[in-house]
């Protein structure tokens, strides 16, 4: 991809994404961390769009920035007396070392591998192609994913349900 616009967009979005992800780890305030997390998600969505994956990019905004960030906020505000700080455990140094190693390894692998790059242009229309693929080739995983969603939903409800106040849960 040598289009100047795409190159500029890639570098800007990459900096936003990684910078905000770094800030998620760095800031002390959990609410600020969530805001940076959203910014990072938006950056990833932008990267998707530079990869001409506009459906996935929009889904990324909708699900991650719109829904999962809200769930995280709910997790914060539903646990009021717990600390709202974003502190590290004592495992900080090993974690830094380990994640540094992982990043080095992944980076080395991605540069060292000789990928079979194709020179086809970006996708023209992804939404319908994804739809066809979902309901044709991947119909079984699709159904399983639907079942998984249902199970997760029921599981979440059952986990937080208070056994002691069955009657009170009605109102």
């Amino acid at each position: 991809m040598e289009d100047t616009g795409t190159v500029v967009a890639f570098w800007a979005l990459a900096i936003i994404t990684i910078g905000s992800a770094f800030m998620v780890a760095a800031v002390r305030n959990l609410i600020h961390a969530v805001v940076f997390l959203v910014l990072s998600f938006l950056g990833v969505a932008g990267l998707y769009i530079t990869l001409s994956a506009d459906f996935v990019g929009v889904v990324q905004i909708l699900i991650y920035s719109g829904a999962i960030a809200i769930l995280v906020i709910f997790a914060i505000v539903l646990t009021p007396q717990a600390g709202r700080d974003n502190a590290e455990t004592s495992m900080r140094l090993p974690a830094v070392v380990l994640s540094g190693l992982v990043a080095t390894m992944l980076g080395y692998a991605s540069i060292d591998t000789n990928w079979s790059i194709s020179d086809r242009p970006g996708f023209e229309e992804t939404a319908s192609a994804i739809g066809v693929a979902l309901l044709d080739k991947y119909i079984l995983p699709f159904e399983i994913a639907a079942a998984l969603m249902l199970v997760a939903m029921l599981g979440a409800i059952i986990i937080v349900r208070d056994e002691g106040t069955e009657g009170a849960a009605e109102d």
């Binding site: 998620v24 502190a87 590290e88 380990l98 990043a103 992944l106 540069i111």
Partner: peptide
């Protein structure tokens, strides 16, 4: 891939090191 790797490393660090 590099962006993905760095993002993954930061996520890993968060998952390993965060107290909350």
């Amino acid at each position: 891939l590099m962006v993905g790797a760095i993002l993954f490393a930061i996520g890993l660090y968060l998952a390993l090191a965060k107290r909350n």
